[in-house]
Amino acid sequence: MTYKAILNGKTLKGETTTEAVDAATAEKVFKQYANDNGVDGEWTYDDATKTFTVTE
């Protein structure tokens, strides 16, 4: 399944996708990606669109 992350960081804005077996696995991948890029904020998840959003 393909999951998407939308990054609304102070220094990084954009989107990325990952293939994962479930939302929990995708969330770990996206949170690591955000952390590696200095983005730390509030996370939300929309199951209907399989989209995570982080906003700083």
Rank of each mutant, 00 (worst) to 15 (best):
V21L: 12
N37Y: 13
N35G: 09
D36N: 08
N35M: 15
A34C: 12
A5V: 15
E19F: 15
K28E: 09
K28M: 12
E15V: 14
E27Q: 11
K28N: 08
T17E: 10
K13M: 08
T55H: 08
K4D: 04
D40Q: 13
T18N: 03
T53R: 06
K50F: 08
A23C: 13
T53N: 05
A5G: 04
E19Q: 14
E42C: 12
A20T: 04
T11R: 10
L12D: 04
K28Y: 08
T11S: 12
G9A: 07
Y33Q: 04
A23V: 11
E19T: 14
E27A: 11
V29D: 04
K4N: 05
V21N: 12
Y33E: 02
G38D: 07
T11F: 14
I6L: 06
G41M: 04
T16G: 04
K13S: 09
K13A: 06
G14L: 15
G9K: 03
L12I: 13
G14P: 03
N8L: 13
T16I: 15
G14D: 10
Y3M: 04
A26L: 00
T17Y: 14
T51D: 01
T18W: 08
V54R: 02
Y33L: 09
W43Y: 02
K31T: 05
M1N: 14
T11L: 11
N35A: 15
A23T: 07
T51N: 02
A5R: 00
D36W: 07
T25E: 13
K28W: 08
D47G: 08
D47C: 07
A26V: 01
E42D: 12
T55Y: 08
A5L: 15
Y3I: 04
G38T: 03
I6H: 05
N35K: 15
A23Q: 11
G9C: 14
Y45P: 00
T2I: 15
T49Y: 04
A48R: 11
W43P: 00
V29W: 14
V54M: 14
G9H: 06
G9T: 15
T25S: 13
T18D: 02
A5E: 05
E56H: 06
D22Q: 03
M1E: 13
D36I: 10
T17L: 09
L12N: 08
A23D: 05
T51W: 01
K31C: 07
T55D: 07
A48K: 11
T51E: 04
T25L: 07
D22C: 05
T17R: 09
I6M: 06
T25R: 06
V21D: 11
W43T: 00
W43A: 00
V21W: 12
T11P: 03
E42P: 05
A20W: 02
A48D: 11
A48L: 12
G14N: 08
G41P: 02
Y45N: 00
Y45V: 01
D36C: 09
K50C: 04
K4A: 05
M1D: 14
W43N: 01
N37K: 12
D40W: 14
E27D: 04
N35L: 15
A24M: 12
F30N: 01
Q32L: 08
G41V: 03
E15Q: 11
Y45S: 01
K10R: 13
F30V: 02
A23I: 10
A24H: 10
T25H: 12
T51Q: 04
N35W: 14
E19Y: 15
G41I: 03
A23E: 07
T53E: 05
G14W: 15
T16P: 03
G41R: 01
A23N: 05
A5S: 03
N35T: 14
V21G: 09
T18M: 09
G38M: 06
V39Y: 08
Y33V: 05
E56G: 06
A24T: 09
F30K: 01
F30R: 01
V39F: 14
K13Y: 12
A34H: 02
Y3Q: 05
T11H: 13
A48I: 12
K31H: 08
T49M: 06
F30E: 00
E15M: 13
K31E: 04
N37L: 15
K31R: 15
T17F: 14
K50T: 02
E15S: 11
K13T: 10
A48W: 07
D46I: 04
V21H: 12
E19N: 13
I6A: 04
D47T: 08
T11V: 11
A48Q: 11
T25Q: 12
F30C: 00
V39S: 02
G41S: 01
T11G: 11
Q32W: 04
E15C: 15
K13W: 12
A20F: 02
N37C: 14
D40I: 14
A24P: 08
M1L: 13
T11Q: 10
I6K: 05
K10G: 07
T11N: 13
D46S: 05
K50S: 05
T11A: 10
T51P: 00
V21R: 12
D40T: 13
D22F: 03
K4V: 09
N35H: 14
W43Q: 01
G41L: 04
D40H: 14
D22G: 03
K50R: 14
N37R: 13
Q32R: 10
E19P: 04
T25Y: 06
N8G: 04
T18A: 08
D40N: 13
T49I: 06
Y33M: 08
V54N: 02
T55M: 07
T16D: 02
T55I: 09
T55C: 06
W43R: 00
Q32Y: 05
K13V: 09
K31D: 02
T44A: 09
D40V: 14
D40Y: 15
G41T: 02
K50Q: 10
T49G: 03
T51H: 02
G38W: 09
D40M: 13
V29T: 09
D36M: 10
T55R: 05
N35D: 11
Y45I: 00
K4R: 13
A24C: 13
N8T: 06
F52W: 07
L7T: 03
T44I: 09
V54P: 01
Y45C: 00
T49C: 04
A34K: 00
